[in-house]
């Protein structure tokens, strides 16, 4: 893995994180004719540049919420605003990194990362941004490889690079490190923090891993079981760089697990 040199990944200085306002968002799916409520009047706000984690039981609606924020789906009711504007269609300023890397198998690693720039018609001038993003995730040298020639962790890193190359102002991460081995995972965690600090975007991270949420983010929102409501809003008032052995993290961990209904294990 590479260390972050300042020249590695430049973001235009005028690009900063967005403010996110979610007001009483409810969403329901249709499952075999019966309505399946997934989100129940969820409301919260994220300050510009804040790094927030969403924690909750499996199937509670975290991915659904991220899809709404990306503009891929629209809520049954309620409002989602970015910088005061209602979210409409998907936009490259808000990028979602999916739970599965879902790389395009017919494109090389380089071409996969270049996807966004190509779609926006700026690939001609942005080629070196692709190289920089690949360097950032430690995959330089694999430009010409096809996705099936990568390991699961490498594929996930390509998916990350594919998002980062667009300089998103809102980065939505759906368990981006879920498939990585624990060693790569630790390194990538540190890099995510470094990346967020440097780019200054607003970031929302969905994870199952309580330690990861606490180590990375400034604030952990805990969801209850479906239909999801926010059951706790835990500020992580620790400066970066953080240390995994910090006793305060242990305390917060206990609090978070309690809200997840796992207090018995402690």
């Amino acid at each position: 893995m590479v260390a972050l040199a300042p020249s590695d990944f430049r973001t235009p200085p005028n690009l900063t994180g967005v403010q996110v306002n979610i007001g009483a968002v409810s969403h329901q799916f249709e499952l075999e004719g019966a309505p399946l409520p997934v989100l129940d009047r969820v409301s919260f706000a994220v300050e510009p540049g804040q790094f927030v984690a969403l924690l909750g039981p499996s199937g509670c609606g975290k991915s659904t919420l991220l899809r709404l924020l990306a503009g891929l789906d629209h809520p049954t009711s309620g409002s989602l605003r970015v910088d005061g504007e209602e979210i409409g269609d998907p936009d490259p300023s808000r990028i979602l990194v999916f739970q599965d890397p879902t790389l395009f198998p017919w494109r090389t690693v380089w071409e996969n990362v270049a996807l966004g720039l190509e779609a926006q018609g700026i690939i001609r001038t942005g080629g070196d941004r692709v190289d920089a993003a690949l360097r950032l995730v430690g995959l330089d040298g694999f430009e010409k490889a096809y996705p099936h020639q990568l390991s699961g962790g490498m594929a996930q890193r390509v998916a990350l690079a594919r998002a980062l190359v667009n300089d998103p102002r809102l980065l939505l991460l759906d368990e981006p490190l879920g498939k990585l081995d624990s060693l790569t995972r630790l390194t990538m965690q540190a890099e995510l923090v470094a990346l967020w600090q440097k780019a200054g975007m607003t970031a929302i991270l969905v994870t199952h891993d309580v330690e990861e949420a606490l180590f990375l983010t400034q604030r952990v929102l805990v969801f209850g079981p479906r239909p999801a409501q926010i059951v706790a809003d835990i500020p992580v008032d620790l400066p970066y760089p953080r240390h995994r052995g910090d006793p305060r993290l242990g305390e917060l961990r206990r609090v978070a697990l309690q809200h997840l209904g796992l207090a018995a294990t402690w």
Binding site: L72, P90, D91, W106, A119, R162
Partner: peptide
């Protein structure tokens, strides 16, 4: 074609044209 391909391309700013010629057709080849 896997619907996720379209979702990913759309979040990356793909136009309709891009979705047809750069996503749907290569995936269907």
């Amino acid at each position: 074609v896997n619907r996720d391909y379209y979702d990913i391309a759309r979040t990356l700013g793909a136009s309709r044209w891009f979705l047809i010629f750069k996503v749907a057709i290569p995936a269907a080849l």
